[in-house]
Computed example of a mutant assay.
Amino acid sequence: MKIILFTNGIWGMPVVEKLHKEGVLGGVVLPSGVDNSALCNYLEILEVQWFELENKDQENELTPWINGKNASLALVFCFPYKIDKQVFESFSEGIYNMHFGDLPKYAGPDPLFWVLKNGESKVHIVVHRMNQYFDSGEVVYSQELQIIPGETYGLLGSRLSMFSSNLINQVIETIKKDHYENTESVPVAQLPRPTEEDLCIQWESQTADQIESLINAANPKYNGAATMFRGVKVRIIEVSPIDNNELIFMDAGSIVRADPQMGVFVVCKDKKILRINVIQMPEGVFSGLKFAALGIQAQERFTSIPVESFEEELI
């Protein structure tokens, strides 16, 4: 059996390596317009052929390329484009997608963001037979993993990509054994890509745990979670929860302590404390210690970005 892999970015490397090691990798399809230089260099070392796909050339260019590889099965892993119907017809065993997030709950183009933002303690790697609808089709394999407390988007995605490569043989054997057929296609509700509003801290309504979850979900892909400080938009990239037994009578977002040796500490709606570890400002990216050394004072406050500013962006 030869397999064509549709993938994107460095997260695809472990799966490429595994399929190549098993001797079943017939070629790799990559999206164009994306910096895949590291992945392409790796494919060159492995002497694996690849095809850079533009959405418009699937029928006239991609399909003949696939047909020349004599592959009966395709795997899709972190691939951003919708695959056309005629491409499905090129694979007698079908096309299967490896999706990070339980289906249909976390259907959509960026499930890991929502898994982390929602504070889930577990994440699923789900394999389903693809059809013309995104993240639809029969689920053939599912594996549940614990999320490590404090894990960021980048760390979790990298760990899942390594774990996925170890599932390849099980997934292939499951597909070969049960011979899944195309079933009736039914669209499922999709979670969208996060908007700038989704990436903003709401100090008045979010707890410390919710704010930490949002910041982890936005690191590094979305450059952290946005908030206002001294009238300027900044992005908080990393925080740590701090044990605190004191009852603090300050508004959410207020700085309760700023110390160049200890950092900057902020109180949240539920009176829990977060320490700012990394923050991005117009002047640069700073550690919490460097941020405190800039003259930050206790009683200063982070505030939510006004809703009107998002409405202005849409006009």
Score class of each variant (00 low, 15 high):
Gly108Ala: 13
Ser136Asn: 05
Asp198Arg: 01
Phe91Ser: 03
Leu314Tyr: 02
Asp243Thr: 11
Val15Asn: 08
Gly288Thr: 03
Pro149Leu: 01
Val267Pro: 10
Val234Met: 11
Leu43Met: 11
Pro14Asp: 08
Glu54Met: 07
Glu181Thr: 14
Val24Gln: 00
Phe79Ile: 00
Glu196Met: 05
Asn41Trp: 08
Leu53Tyr: 09
Glu120Ala: 10
Leu39Cys: 06
Asn118Pro: 06
Gly295Cys: 13
Asn70Val: 09
Trp50Val: 02
Leu43Trp: 05
Trp114Lys: 05
Arg275Leu: 12
Asn216Trp: 01
Val24Ser: 01
Ala38Pro: 08
Gln261Pro: 01
Val256Met: 11
Lys221Val: 12
Ala298His: 06
Phe265Trp: 02
Arg301His: 05
Thr183Leu: 15
Gly119Lys: 07
Gly154Leu: 04
Met228Glu: 15
Gly26Glu: 09
Ala71Ile: 05
Ala252Gln: 10
Ala217Phe: 03
Glu313Pro: 00
Arg129Ile: 02
Glu89Met: 11
Val171Phe: 07
Met250Gly: 06
Phe113Gly: 09
Leu46Trp: 03
Gly288Pro: 03
Ile83Arg: 02
Glu283Pro: 00
Gly137Pro: 05
Pro194Gln: 03
Pro192Arg: 03
Ser205Tyr: 07
Thr195Ile: 06
Ile201Lys: 04
Lys18Val: 06
Phe91Gly: 03
Ile83Phe: 02
Glu138Gly: 07
Phe91Tyr: 02
Phe310Leu: 07
Asn169Leu: 15
Tyr96Arg: 09
Lys69Gly: 13
Ser287Trp: 01
Val285Cys: 10
Met262Gln: 14
Val232Phe: 05
Asn131Gly: 11
Ile147Gln: 01
Thr174Asp: 14
Tyr133Met: 06
Ser37Arg: 13
Ile201Pro: 09
Gly27Gln: 10
Ile125Met: 05
Pro306Arg: 10
Pro192Gly: 07
Lys122Arg: 12
Ser240Gln: 14
Leu30Arg: 04
Gly284Ala: 03
Ser72Phe: 01
Glu197Met: 10
Gln49Cys: 14
Asn223Gly: 13
Asn55Ser: 14
Leu160Val: 00
Leu247Val: 13
Gly101Phe: 01
Glu246Asp: 15
Asp209Pro: 02
Pro306Lys: 12
Gly108Thr: 12
Trp65Leu: 09
Val16Trp: 00
Thr183Cys: 13
Glu246Trp: 04
Ala225Leu: 05
Gln86Asn: 15
Ile201Trp: 01
Gly9Gln: 07
Val256Arg: 04
Glu196Leu: 11
Glu54His: 10
Val186Tyr: 06
Tyr96His: 10
His179Pro: 08
Asn169Gly: 10
Asn277Phe: 00
Tyr133Asn: 14
Leu294Glu: 13
Cys40Ser: 15
Ile236Cys: 05
Asn36Leu: 07
Leu314Asp: 09
Leu247Lys: 12
Thr7Tyr: 00
Met281Phe: 01
Phe229Ile: 07
Lys233Cys: 11
Lys56Ser: 15
Lys69Trp: 11
Gln202Met: 11
Ile255Asp: 09
Asn166Leu: 15
Ser142Gln: 13
Gln261Cys: 10
